[in-house]
Design a protein around this nucleic acid. Structure first.
Lengths: 346, 346
DNA sequence: CTGAAAGCGCTTACAG
DNA sequence: CTGAAAGCGCTTACAG
C-alpha cells in the first residue's frame, strides 16, 4: 500500500507549516491564515488526497471515535444484524465506528472482551443481547459510558432499551378476541427465556380483560417441530381452540403445517398468530402470518444514541449522574396484520 | 472513567525509566535489566493494572491490529453472522479486531467505507458478500492486503473463498438418485443470484450422469410462498415427480406445506431436499430436512487467514506477487442427510 | 498573520 | 546494565 500522505506532506507541497495545514483543514483558517495560503493548502491537500490519520488523532484527543459493542450470541439470530445495523447507522452518522466482540455467552470471553475494548480506548460501550434477558453490568464498567440493548441491568446501573413484550402479546391476543375468538390457546416458548413469561402474561391479561377464562398455557418451544408437536396435541383434543397464539414465528410454521396435516384450513378453520415478525418467515408463510414486530433496529439505535450523546457531550464525570435518562425504556412492539386470522367458523 | 495507567506511571512506581518498563513487559528484559528491577516493574504493572495503550502502539508501529470488513447486506441474512464469526475468531486469535461496515449494497456507501477504513489505518481488508456473487475489487485496494469471502473478483485481483455450489447440488441430487428416484424436479431460485445457476448446473450434471433426461427446471424463488406455489403447480401436473430439489431450505418449507395440503406424505410419497442447512429451518422441519451445508464459517475463517498471514508476514510489497495462493478456492458443501428422503413409492 | 514547540503513549536505537 | 532522545501524525497554546 503506498504510504498515505501526512499533514507534513501537505505542508511541504503548499510551502507552509503543519500548523497552518491543520488550522485550515479544520475550518479555523479565517482570521488566522492569509487567503492565498489557505487556497494553496486546500489545493495541496486535494492533490495528495490527504485525510488525517485517525490513529494519530485518537492519541492526541484521547478519543478513538469508536464504540465497543459486546454481544452474547450474534450468530445464532437473524435479528442480531438488525440491532447492530441500527446501532452502526447511528454511530456512523457521528463519525463513529463499532468494534464488536461476540462472547458466545462465555463469561471468560466477556471479561476479555471488555479488557480488549478498553485497551483500544473505546469511548463507550454497548451491550446487546440476542434474546431479552437480565445482564449484570461488570463493575469495571460502572463508571464508563454504556447502554444496554435488548437486556437490562437488575441493578439499573445503565440505561436499557427493551421491547414491551407484554403489550405486544396483549395486542395480538386482543386482535384475535376482536375478531370474535373465544377459544384461544397459547403455545409458549421455554421458561429459560425471559420473553416467554412476558408473552404469557400479555396473553393472560388480554384474555382475562375480555372476561374469558384463562386457559393454562401449553409449553411448546421455539422451533418449527416444537410448534408442530404441540399443535398436533392441542388440535386433536376434545375441544380444539379456534385460534392459536404462538411463542414465535417459527413455532407458528409448525402450527400451520400441523393444521395442514389435520385438514384444517388456516385461517378459515383455525387462526394462527406468531411473534417476532421474522422477515424470512412471517411475510411469506402460507398464509402470510399476522404477528408482532420486535423493535430490534430501534433498540440498537436508541441505545447507541444515548451512549453517543453522553460521549459527545463530554460532560465531566461528576455531572453524569445528574441527568440520567429513564433507566429502562420499553419500546413498542407493533401488531402486524396479515392473512392468518379470520373470524372463528363456529 | 478513571484514566488508565500509562507506562510512565509504572516507571514512576517502580523507580525506573519508561524504556525499562517497555523492555521488561515485552519480554526483552533478560540481559538488559537487572533481575531485581525486573521484579519491581512487573509488580508495579500488576498493581496499576497496566496494559499498553493500543492507540499509541498503533501510531508507533503503523499497524492498527485491525482488519476492515466490508459487507453488502449483513442484516438480511441469518448466515452473515456465521461468516463474520469465523472471521472474527481467526482474527482475535492473532490479537486482531474487526471493523465491519455494511454498505447495504450502495456503491456510495461502499466507497466511503473503504475511505473510512483506510483512514483508520486498518492493516487489511475483507470483503464478504451475503450471497455468492461477482465483486469488482476497487482499484484503490489492488495494492492493499485483501481477500474475498463468498464472492470473487472477475479479474481475480484477490484471493477468493467461495462454496462449491455445483458439487453440492450434484451431491444432493445424486443422493436422491441413489435412493431410487427417477422423476426429479428442481425448483430454482431467481436468476439474479449466481448460486441459482450453479445449483441448476449441479442438478443437471447428476441427472445426466445417471442417464436420465434432464427436466427443464421450474423457477420458484427463495421464499416459503414461492416454493409453495411452484410445488402446488408441479405436484398437480399429470405426471408429478417423486422427488423435489429445492433452491434453498425456505423454499423447501413451502414444498412440504404444499405436500401436506395435497395429502402427500413426506418422505413416503414425496422426497424433498433443500440447500443451505439453515439452522432455523432444516434440522427442525417436519420431517427434518436433508440438505446441503453452506460453508459460511469456513469462508470467513479461510479468507481472514490469508489476509492475516500476509499482514503478519510483513512481506515487502514487492515480494507479494510471488507466492499468491490459489485465487479462487472452492469450499466443500457437505451433504447433510436427515429424514426428508425415502425411496420412491412407485 | 505565521512558525516552532510541546505533548498524546509507546518502543527502539543510541549514548553512557 | 540503564536512561535520554527521537519519532509515529496530529493539534493547540505560545512566541514572534
Amino acid at each position: 500500500m503506498p504510504r498515505k500522505a501526512t499533514s507534513q506532506d501537505v505542508a511541504d507541497l503548499a510551502g507552509v507549516s503543519r500548523s497552518a495545514v491543520s488550522l485550515v483543514l479544520n475550518g479555523r483558517g479565517a482570521g488566522n491564515i492569509a487567503a492565498d495560503k489557505q487556497a494553496l493548502i486546500v489545493a495541496a491537500a486535494q492533490q495528495l488526497n490527504y485525510t488525517p490519520n485517525t490513529v494519530a488523532l485518537s492519541l492526541r484527543s484521547r478519543r478513538s471515535s469508536t464504540i465497543g459493542v459486546v454481544t452474547d450470541a450474534i450468530a445464532t439470530s437473524a435479528f442480531g444484524g438488525q440491532l447492530l445495523e441500527g446501532a452502526a447507522d447511528v454511530a456512523v452518522a457521528e463519525g463513529y465506528l463499532l468494534l464488536v466482540i461476540d462472547t458466545q455467552n462465555d463469561l471468560g470471553r466477556e471479561r476479555r472482551a471488555y479488557e480488549t475494548l478498553q485497551n483500544r480506548q473505546v469511548d463507550g460501550f454497548l451491550f446487546a443481547a440476542m434474546s431479552l434477558r437480565a445482564y449484570d453490568v461488570p463493575t469495571a464498567l460502572r463508571s464508563a459510558t454504556c447502554a444496554l440493548a435488548n437486556c437490562f441491568d437488575p441493578a439499573d446501573s445503565a440505561p436499557a432499551f427493551i421491547p414491551d413484550e407484554v403489550a405486544g402479546s396483549r395486542a395480538v391476543t386482543q386482535h384475535l378476541i376482536d375478531r370474535g375468538h373465544r377459544d384461544i390457546v397459547m403455545l409458549t416458548g421455554t421458561s429459560d427465556v425471559v420473553a416467554s413469561g412476558l408473552r404469557e402474561q400479555g396473553f393472560a391479561e388480554a384474555v382475562a380483560m375480555a372476561g374469558l377464562q384463562v386457559p393454562g398455557p401449553v409449553t411448546a418451544g421455539w422451533e418449527i417441530d416444537k410448534g408442530y408437536a404441540a399443535a398436533m396435541h392441542v388440535l386433536s383434543g376434545d375441544r380444539p381452540p379456534t385460534a392459536i397464539v404462538c411463542a414465535n414465528d417459527r413455532s407458528a410454521v409448525g402450527v400451520v403445517l400441523a393444521a395442514a396435516h389435520l385438514g384444517l384450513s388456516v385461517p378459515g378453520e383455525l387462526s394462527v398468530v406468531g411473534y417476532d415478525d421474522d422477515e424470512n418467515v412471517a411475510p411469506c408463510l402460507v398464509p402470510a402470518l399476522t404477528t408482532v414486530r420486535l423493535p430490534h433496529r430501534e433498540m440498537g439505535e436508541r441505545a447507541m444514541r444515548v451512549v453517543l450523546d453522553r460521549v459527545l457531550d463530554d460532560t465531566p464525570a461528576s455531572a453524569v449522574s445528574e441527568t440520567r435518562p429513564a433507566l429502562r425504556t420499553l419500546l413498542d412492539c407493533p401488531l402486524v396484520i396479515r392473512e392468518s386470522v379470520a373470524p372463528p367458523s363456529r
